[in-house]
Design a protein around this nucleic acid. Sequence first.
DNA 1: CGCAACATTGAACGGTATCAAGTATGGTGG
DNA 2: CCACCATACTTGATACCGTTCAATGTTGCG
Lengths: 242, 242
Amino acid sequence: MQQATTLHALDAIGLSEAVSEVLAAAAGSPRSLAPGERLVEQGEVSTGVCLLLSGIVKACRNLRDGGVQTLALYTSGDVVDSLAYVARRATATIAAVTPSRVAEIPAARLELLMETHPSIARALWRSTAREAAILQEWVVGMGRRSAHSQIAHLMCEIVLRLRLGGPNARVHRFPLTQAELADIAGLSAVHVNRIVQGLRADGLIELGRGWLRIQDWDRLIEVADFDPWYLGIGVQAVDRAG
Amino acid sequence: MQQATTLHALDAIGLSEAVSEVLAAAAGSPRSLAPGERLVEQGEVSTGVCLLLSGIVKACRNLRDGGVQTLALYTSGDVVDSLAYVARRATATIAAVTPSRVAEIPAARLELLMETHPSIARALWRSTAREAAILQEWVVGMGRRSAHSQIAHLMCEIVLRLRLGGPNARVHRFPLTQAELADIAGLSAVHVNRIVQGLRADGLIELGRGWLRIQDWDRLIEVADFDPWYLGIGVQAVDRAG
DNA sequence: CGCAACATTGAACGGTATCAAGTATGGTGG
DNA sequence: CCACCATACTTGATACCGTTCAATGTTGCG
């Protein structure tokens, strides 16, 4: 069953079942994380690559003045912070948002695997690329979108990317607090609250503790200026020859 | 001479000289770009990977409402927008900031090269990772740093990363206008101007048309909360076995 | 029940945008 | 060499967006 979870997870990053099995075999025994528990501390030397088997995990940067900026969200099947592997040091702290399970593949073992299975190296590259694409979208949101639009955009992205249910679902699980949304958006929690109320008043969403109902997906997308295309980057193997 | 420039350029992304030569041979004939000239339009299908041989080039996103957000800067030796190659579509428009020369390696040829030279695939992965690391820094700046600190941070980053001269140089070439800084920082050009004047008044910098004098590097770093470490990500090959 | 975490509300302040001039600066053609 | 033009930079006034501080309500859980 453990095995099955791992395989399902790796599916998402575009590896064949056979290769996924190889990778799963290389992973150490899974570790469980409670909400808020930290997996990696920023600045730490990276010892390998982490696969997220279940749950939701975030990467955030802690500033000198006490401020926090979230830099990434991960869901089951994601490679957690592939950037840290390339950089050989973590640029951010990794912490669990919901109860989660992760499995680590030590660097040395991964190096060998990538030599024999180039598709694994490609999959990790795609992971990094997807992260970069999402960061680009966040930069656009923070720089050039109104806070309303930015929060709406984040809601669209999070619901789709964390696979909390398709646009057709009536109510989505939504494990982020308003304060956590603020850490992502670079806004204050108070302001996020007011924006959420605005979106509610406009009949676009309803947001409760742990859930989100998108009442008018079309108008939300309109407000957010949301194009889901970028979420597809790297989720499946690309065969250029074909 | 053409060849020599190319080789020097690729050096920066951590390829051995022999492999650089292979890559240089695969590149098409260089294309020159005038300032403002566009190389790729956002949404376009990617046809390969571009190497920047000389000059400075930027990636920016044009919004519906006319706003512009810059997402990356490239200097000679950089792989331009490796993300577009992985995504198979450009997520941003690429345009020259200064007169530049680029050479493209068609996707099909690159695929073959990566099979025979895995170090090329690794170098491209590192390029993507470096871009992601810089985007992270920009997100932190936009989200949690004061505009003063953010602009100071950008100046540190740009001077070092675009190799406009080391911290010891008296005066750096600085080819970005205040409006371009604003497009990066997500601020208005007017406000950037006022911040620049503040930094000048504090005796940190002097900024003219095309040049930047950093009068007090230590205090500028202090204001910016700048740690150059992230700029080193991916600039040289990492041999984990060693 | 009582506590802790999350959400909401109000008031006041400050940072940033916007609009609308006006002033260098450098390049170009005459 | 000069006049002109386009681009970049500067400045001021005003309004708004978003923050901060502080307090209160609400929910769920031990």
